[in-house]
Design a protein around this nucleic acid. Structure first.
Lengths: 352, 352
DNA sequence: ATAGTCAAGTTAACCGGTTAACTTCTTTGG
DNA sequence: CCAAAGAAGTTAACCGGTTAACTTGACTAT
């Protein structure tokens, strides 16, 4: 077992006190002469000294640790990360990890599990800040606020007073997607999402969709506005219901397009439609939301609303670190731009 | 700012020393009377005391931190986690996180970046153990071995002397997949993978594939054995090459099936084939490897070799923690069973 | 009655850094 | 020429726990 080299060893080697070594490391300029600095740096190099973050963390009250809180799915007793089901979180997490690394922070992850106290989780390791992915249940959020550490909310409650938030103008995005479909001749458009009332993000997209229809003098049909879980399975179930509606509707009245508030929902819906022998996009066009890498895999490729997920993760970590390091005065509420990415899941409607 | 309650506060509140509080927390039975124990526990409850892991970590030399080392992709200067491109890693990570959490450990992630010293990364936080995902470059591995902490290798060099490893019998798995295709009448079968020589896992699958052919009295065709990156794009490129081969071959001689050593490669390949108007599975059947959730999304659903990714992650974390806690005498080398999951990407060959 | 055990704590050193306060020596200003 | 200021370090307390060694009193065995 190689003995770990500590600041004490470096100090002894150079013939100075540990305080001086510490000062060199932390760039306290006014405390150490250039010559001594060089000698210490040389010794650090030679001995392969690496400061211990645990000790530093204890002394400074700063851990250089970013907590990433991931939503979970319950499958029986096991509560596993949604990360495994929705590539969305993987892309986001990758962006966060990248930026955190660049700025000298490490990323520690956990699922948001009902039985677990997030406050305790964060506190026991003195985390410097946390990022919430996905919908953040109020109780968890409040628990964290009591800690008074920087928090970034992603696609959650926009404009939580004392947290940063990153998202998009979901109203506009929903409107955009709907208008995109209408511009191609669609008039009967369904809306598929997770809970509309439980997720502000979905609500906004829904309202945007409604607004677009209204401006075009159209109205949405209640039985084409569906809610289920934000998952492949949820999308599949909603797709089956849309297929039923499609089958029983008369010519010229049937649904010809779907706007899904998440790509993964669109994947499931498309699967269901195809199984019911409804052609996508010839019979029903589909627009998703997220622009996951996976959109390319499908046939047809999924036309969707891009939200630059990876970049969003980078941004989130950046803001969090900025705040931690005191570079931010006020809370930031960022609305990222979105854009439609055209693939092959949309075409003009044809007569039934 | 709420003042953090420490063991000292608890001690004062109960009227004992901090040592006693510590003994209660750590269940040092022989040191504290049942009555005192109860009083301390009560105080802990009342004051909402939460031991500080940073301090504990420093004192014990044990951090309860598991490092997960993720492979990266280089795109220009940015080296982002492969996690964002291949759902495989997300499933694995989810499994790891779950089991780690159950056993009282936290998970900290990083990419394996050439310029970064993994040894330093692990050492500076006193991590208790690490899990390597994907191919592990030797230099990185050796660097870590010098630390003498438990290491689990996933799908990497099988049987690295002093590390645990988890994988499958890839030879058998490759053979199985190939036999599955042959049992359905295929005789000309391609093999698509990442580097065969650079990845022992791919090599084994390749050898299994060869063996199966040989046993059936068939031989593989060199121009149907392709290598590229393990990615959607790599699969796409290989798919295009297969399409070319298909077009120029004569009836009865053309490739009728592909065995892809990773699902994500299969996704890309199918996309390419479809774009070239080659029907899957009618003209070319495809078998993948991994059984990602995403296999369900595609149309046709991908028939593949299941390796229970999530469970593999759970197992990895379990072994790592077992070792950390001294419950393991020797290195474990686990070969998980695999099985074919049938979906819709395979059918008997038809005359061209 | 007396040494030896044991239960139940306490004390204090320690983990590896950070940092406020102090020292010592040199320089500068009036 | 002497006080004040500044440069370059050092000392020691501290962060919040853990743990080996020690204490104290009660109980047991001889």
């Amino acid at each position: 077992m190689k003995p770990k080299v500590s600041a004490k060893d470096v100090a002894r080697h150079v013939g100075v006190s540990v305080a001086t070594v510490s000062n060199v490391i932390n760039n306290v300029n006014k405390k150490v002469s250039e010559e001594t600095r060089q000698r210490v740096l040389k010794a650090i190099e030679e001995l392969h000294y690496q400061p211990d973050f645990t000790a530093r963390s204890l002394a400074k009250g700063k851990s250089n640790l970013l907590g990433v809180l991931l939503p979970i799915t319950q499958a029986g007793d096991d509560e596993s990360l949604l990360l495994k089901d929705n590539p969305f979180y993987a892309e986001l997490l990758s962006g966060i990890e990248f930026e955190a690394g660049q700025r000298g922070y490490d990323v520690i992850i956990t699922g948001i599990r009902p039985e677990q106290s997030l406050k305790d989780w964060v506190r026991k390791r003195n985390m410097d800040g946390v990022i919430f992915l996905g919908i953040t249940p109020e109780p968890f959020l409040n628990e964290l606020k009591a800690l008074h550490i920087p928090v970034v909310l992603m696609d959650s409650h926009p404009k939580q007073g004392d947290c940063h938030s990153i998202g998009h103008d979901d109203f506009l995005a929903g409107k955009l997607a709907c208008q995109y479909l209408m511009a191609r001749g669609h008039q009967v458009i369904g809306f598929l999402s997770g809970g509309i009332q439980t997720s502000p993000v979905n609500l906004k997209r829904y309202e945007g969709y409604q607004e677009a229809l209204k401006e075009a003098g159209l109205t949405s049909r209640p039985n084409l506005v569906l809610e289920d879980s934000v998952s492949f399975e949820g999308g599949y179930r909603m797709g089956l219901r849309i297929a039923q509606e499609y089958e029983k509707s008369r010519k010229g009245e049937s649904v010809t397009a779907l706007f899904c508030a998440a790509d993964i929902v669109a994947f499931g819906a498309i699967k269901a439609l195809r199984e019911k022998r409804i052609k996508v996009p010839e019979e029903i066009s589909v627009v998703g939301f997220d622009n996951l890498k996976t959109c390319d895999y499908l046939i047809p490729g999924l036309t969707t609303v891009d939200q630059g997920i990876y970049h969003k993760g980078v941004l989130a970590a950046g803001i969090l670190v900025d705040d931690i390091e005191g570079k931010l005065e006020a809370c930031r509420h960022i609305q990222l731009p979105v854009r439609i990415v055209e693939r092959d899941s949309v075409c003009p409607p044809r007569e039934k």
